[in-house]
Write a protein that binds this DNA or RNA. Sequence first.
DNA 1: CATGAATGAGGGTTCATTCAT
DNA 2: AATGAATGAACCCTCATTCAT
Lengths: 193, 193, 193, 193
Amino acid sequence: MGGPTRRELQKQERRNQLLDTARGLFAAQGVEGTTIKDIADAAGVAQGLLYHYFASKEDLLWAIIARDNPFTDMSEIMSNAGDRPAREVLLQASLRAYQILAERAELFRIVVREFITRPEMRQGFKMIQAIALGLLTRYLEARIAAGELRPHNPDVTARMLIGAVLAGHLTGRPAEPYLAEVVDTLMEGIAAA
Amino acid sequence: MGGPTRRELQKQERRNQLLDTARGLFAAQGVEGTTIKDIADAAGVAQGLLYHYFASKEDLLWAIIARDNPFTDMSEIMSNAGDRPAREVLLQASLRAYQILAERAELFRIVVREFITRPEMRQGFKMIQAIALGLLTRYLEARIAAGELRPHNPDVTARMLIGAVLAGHLTGRPAEPYLAEVVDTLMEGIAAA
Amino acid sequence: MGGPTRRELQKQERRNQLLDTARGLFAAQGVEGTTIKDIADAAGVAQGLLYHYFASKEDLLWAIIARDNPFTDMSEIMSNAGDRPAREVLLQASLRAYQILAERAELFRIVVREFITRPEMRQGFKMIQAIALGLLTRYLEARIAAGELRPHNPDVTARMLIGAVLAGHLTGRPAEPYLAEVVDTLMEGIAAA
Amino acid sequence: MGGPTRRELQKQERRNQLLDTARGLFAAQGVEGTTIKDIADAAGVAQGLLYHYFASKEDLLWAIIARDNPFTDMSEIMSNAGDRPAREVLLQASLRAYQILAERAELFRIVVREFITRPEMRQGFKMIQAIALGLLTRYLEARIAAGELRPHNPDVTARMLIGAVLAGHLTGRPAEPYLAEVVDTLMEGIAAA
DNA sequence: CATGAATGAGGGTTCATTCAT
DNA sequence: AATGAATGAACCCTCATTCAT
């Protein structure tokens, strides 16, 4: 029987509140630049309380990443591509990725910043990238096999698309018409006929 | 008469030594994660000496950026494009950018990391990106006008190329054949004829 | 309900303990000559704790001054002069001032020392002196108006009395018979009849 | 035979320049608040040079005090009192003391500040005060014996005059008419006839 | 005589973490 | 569950002093 008790619910809420608060500050000031006191003050609690929910500041960081990790979300998207035209599928995937980046902008900033220098996090970064790359590459291979795309190295295409999406996000470009143009260019190339 | 004295030479050498040491540590551990003591120990000098050359840790960071800034280097490259085929020019530019990123990998890691969270540095970042984008965009416009490339939005192409170069660098891809494939894809597209 | 809780009481006690300890050391060695470690060690606490109670060493100094400031104490004295003979009132005021200087000798030493060189404190010094001078001057004016004292510039008399009290304190003269002689001289002069 | 050489003169000038520079900074910022670099920069020389002239910062402080000590100057004044009226002599002495305080204001500030907390300097302070007090007291005793002043404790009068002079100086009062009023009050008292 | 690079001890301050309440 | 007083290790930086040039 079951379900969470009232108390467990409150506990979850408090935990989420602390995660939200910490995520905002981490994104704005960096992990090193944010003190436990900052987080406690912003959340309106005492410093000590954070140690009831998280073993350390490091643990708090990992808890944020674990909770807001968007990968389960992403993997579904590519699975349902079916037989629609590649241009349409790639555009939809780009748009969705853009959307996720916007929604998770704070997490993204935290992760990029920390991944750059922390050796133990670089490992995780490679995994993440491999997943996204894998999803895309497998899709492209299927479309080449189906004859919709000309034979080429799909890994390169995947990296170009991901790079263009990231570059657009980082430089604040609106999704429209940028992503459509990217996909068009990818499909047709820029050489004069 | 003239020329740097022995003492001035030594001063420059010492200064460069400290900049090199700091750059390596900043890149490896982040600016926050590197202490003045770390740098002094690695350079084999006393902590106090750093303050003989740089007013503060912050000042030291800016001194690294100022010294290793690759912009003058980059702008020359696109100016000498002349009338060679676009495929060749874009590939050469990509290769050179890759090379610069490799040479300045440490600076690049430092800068990206710090730019992500420091507001005063974001400004600088936008400038940098605008320069690179501008160089590329102007070149593409010229080739469209010359009829070598089909009419399209060159800003998108520029971002795609930059994104692909950055993504390749960040994920440790060797330049060959990656960059050639990127440029080919950009020129011809991936759609089946 | 109400009143301070146990914890609030302890907080006040601890705060006062730290102020007492710091005051003693500041008086003995000067503010610059006293380190936070000195204070913490003397109080038997960790250095960090001082920053739980005071934002900085400077703040600690001001907190001592604020707590031990004798002005409310002093202003009452002159208000209750009533119609007693001036000789009696001036003597009583001198004695009381002497007493305060003795009680607050540490604060006094600190304040004089810091006021001499810190521009921002000189301001405060002028205010303090103006208050004491004002109290005395107003009293003397009233007694001149009442015909008890001969017409003269009361500001000068006030400064002479204050000067004599300070000089006596600084050179360690016992209050008796010094202050009585000072007041007598002030009342009668030293010229032969 | 004879006279300081050119080089010795230059040496003296340089020494005096350094003493002047240091005195100004010590007075303005306190001894602790002044760095050797401050002094060297203000004098336009290298830090190391100060150690050619003075063994340490402490030594530099004592050298200032030794050079600018005003006592020889002061003792002559009271010796030549002769038989002039006491009012005139006391006023002249007060004026001269005021003048000396003004001329030596910097030294005075330094000395007071350091004397307050340095045990080894308190000793010197007592000597100084004893000298001034002695000169004045002996003069007053002579005038009492001569019948010009009524019998009283001259030590008290001396302290009152010194106190009034110091208080006036510290609070920035102009010499005129303050000192004349002080001497008048001292001579005649403030009681109504 | 003069320079200023170099040292190294120590200062004020910060902050993640602990623990009695 | 929640508080916040208390700790102590480090951090950035300062500065009197030394010494090779």
